[in-house]
Simulated scan of single mutants.
Amino acid sequence: MKAFIFFSLFFAVAFVSVLFNGGVCLSQTPVEFKLASQYPVGAPMHELLSEWAKKINVESKGRITIRIFPSGTLLQPPDLYDGVVKGVADMSAGWRYRPEGYEVGILIPTIMQAPSVEIATRIYEELWNQFPEIRNEWKDVKPLWLTGSVSVNIFTRKEFKKLDDLKGMQIRAPERPGATVLKDLGISPVFMSTADFPVALEKGTIDGGYGAITVVTDFKLEKSIKSVLMHHFAFTTPNWLIMNLNSYNRLTPDLKKVIDDSCDWGRKKQVELWARENERVFTHLKESGVNLVYFSTAERERFYSTVRQTHRKLVSELDGKGYPGTKILQFIEEKTRLYSR
């Protein structure tokens, strides 16, 4: 009996020793995560994600490796969110496009009137805390960070000086809320894929585009356009990095802490990056000879009056579905005025 107890204790001690000294402990087992990105190699956001991946690898002492799949190599941009939910990728970075399960969130970029990425991020974080309807649309993933990014602008192949000059133009729109605003402004929205858009613009199949202003430089569209409207009525928010819930939950507490502790760093770096990008793009467009259009005071008020009416129409549709659309819009307008002083 004593011998049995002795050997039992011996093997118990040996098992614990192995467990905590690198034998089978999950915290000592290296893991590799697949990160599907919306950004091509060389894009500033790709460089930031690469820097973050290296940071995670160092701080996990080599136990976490993050392999980045650039734009379209693992998941297409519209599939980035669902691909993480389904486990095709462990992480993804980009924007959400599809309205399924995202009826509130798909409207946020269109009604986000912030003048800068810093203010857009601040307002979105307050929206997140204030409205559970927004948080619930992200319940199937673990958001690592969500921030504002860049302004949404109208850019055209033709020169224009006033709102009436835009009427009848065929402008590419990436989603329905933005297309609704364009239509109410007298513009003809056209839906097409991101891949087809640069070719159509170059050939003159369409008259211009509406979207994140960095699209112009990402696809070198400055050679195909002559004018950009500097009065934006939308701000691409949120821009995110998310993680599959199972991929996160199977980590040991020490590795979860490595991921969690990096989020504030990533959020701050991303806000700084998009602030620089906004400034860089407009400077580049001006230097390239693209006309940066500013409406007169009266014309600007006419423009924004139409935009505000469309915003109210869009949020009333949300109200009808049981969401607090009007309250969200009022919250954004109030905070925009407060933080823009």
Results as ranks from 00 to 15, higher is better:
residue 136 N to C: 00
residue 113 Q to E: 10
residue 109 P to L: 09
residue 66 I to H: 04
residue 137 E to G: 02
residue 147 T to M: 04
residue 160 F to N: 04
residue 88 V to Q: 08
residue 144 L to S: 00
residue 109 P to T: 05
residue 75 L to I: 05
residue 46 H to E: 15
residue 119 I to V: 14
residue 128 W to H: 00
residue 106 I to S: 06
residue 151 S to V: 12
residue 41 V to P: 12
residue 47 E to Y: 02
residue 68 I to K: 07
residue 139 K to S: 12
residue 138 W to S: 09
residue 84 V to M: 05
residue 142 K to H: 08
residue 72 G to W: 12
residue 61 K to H: 13
residue 29 T to A: 05
residue 58 V to N: 02
residue 122 R to S: 10
residue 124 Y to K: 01
residue 48 L to I: 09
residue 68 I to P: 12
residue 29 T to L: 05
residue 48 L to F: 09
residue 34 K to D: 15
residue 44 P to M: 07
residue 111 I to H: 03
residue 65 T to N: 13
residue 147 T to L: 02
residue 139 K to P: 00
residue 111 I to C: 03
residue 103 E to Y: 06
residue 139 K to R: 08
residue 51 E to F: 01
residue 151 S to H: 13
residue 93 A to Y: 02
residue 136 N to E: 14
residue 51 E to L: 04
residue 107 L to F: 10
residue 36 A to W: 10
residue 88 V to E: 10
residue 122 R to T: 08
residue 95 W to P: 01
residue 149 S to N: 02
residue 129 N to A: 14
residue 60 S to C: 05
residue 135 R to L: 06
residue 75 L to S: 07
residue 144 L to K: 00
residue 94 G to D: 06
residue 154 I to W: 11
residue 119 I to F: 12
residue 104 V to S: 04
residue 34 K to Q: 12
residue 67 R to M: 10
residue 103 E to I: 03
residue 104 V to Q: 04
residue 99 P to F: 08
residue 74 L to H: 07
residue 61 K to P: 00
residue 96 R to P: 05
residue 44 P to F: 06
residue 112 M to F: 03
residue 110 T to E: 11
residue 97 Y to G: 04
residue 98 R to C: 11
residue 41 V to M: 14
residue 41 V to I: 15
residue 149 S to K: 01
residue 72 G to K: 08
residue 150 V to Q: 03
residue 138 W to E: 13
residue 80 L to E: 11
residue 120 A to Q: 04
residue 123 I to H: 06
residue 54 K to T: 05
residue 55 K to G: 03
residue 119 I to M: 08
residue 122 R to V: 01
residue 101 G to A: 03
residue 41 V to A: 15
residue 118 E to P: 00
residue 153 N to Y: 05
residue 151 S to F: 11
residue 33 F to P: 12
residue 47 E to V: 03
residue 75 L to Q: 07
residue 84 V to N: 07
residue 95 W to K: 03
residue 142 K to L: 13
residue 150 V to M: 05
residue 130 Q to F: 06
residue 119 I to G: 06
residue 95 W to H: 09
residue 86 K to N: 12
residue 35 L to C: 14
residue 106 I to E: 11
residue 71 S to W: 07
residue 30 P to W: 14
residue 114 A to I: 04
residue 45 M to Q: 12
residue 144 L to Q: 00
residue 102 Y to M: 14
residue 27 S to T: 15
residue 91 M to R: 07
residue 96 R to I: 14
residue 87 G to V: 06
residue 49 L to Y: 01
residue 60 S to D: 04
residue 68 I to C: 13
residue 42 G to Y: 06
residue 151 S to R: 15
residue 104 V to W: 02
residue 102 Y to E: 11
residue 145 W to P: 00
residue 71 S to L: 10
residue 140 D to R: 11
residue 46 H to V: 07
residue 100 E to S: 09
residue 102 Y to H: 14
residue 117 V to K: 06
residue 96 R to T: 13
residue 44 P to D: 09
residue 36 A to P: 09
residue 97 Y to V: 02
